[in-house]
Amino acid sequence: MNKKIYVDQESRIVNPIIFDQNLCTGCNRCVEACQVDLFIPNPERKKPPIVLYPTECWYCGCCVMECPKPNAIKLNPPLMNQIYWKRKSEHKY
């Protein structure tokens, strides 16, 4: 029963995590910090992890908090969650 299995990357309904290929060292600290376990390590060494189950993301940012390389990993909340704000000084009464 312990035969090889293959996986598909879940279709990209959302894109919660964006890696910078040039900054990420593939250390997998983010993989180990994610409680939902939605990543898998990249089969190629030193490459960014693979976001296998993007729709399971809780958007907590722990993967970003645990990453030792600034800007290697970015959290990208779903578009419908964009919040509006406005500059008070430009506010016309």
Binding site: M65, I83, W85, K86, K88
Partner: peptide
């Protein structure tokens, strides 16, 4: 706060939110 350091505090500031100047809906 829980799940707010990166998705809110950091991301809003990166997107230009200034707590001294901006009204948040």
């Amino acid at each position: 706060e829980g799940k707010s350091r990166i998705p809110i505090f950091q991301r809003y500031e990166e997107a230009g939110f200034v707590p001294e100047k901006d009204l948040l809906q």
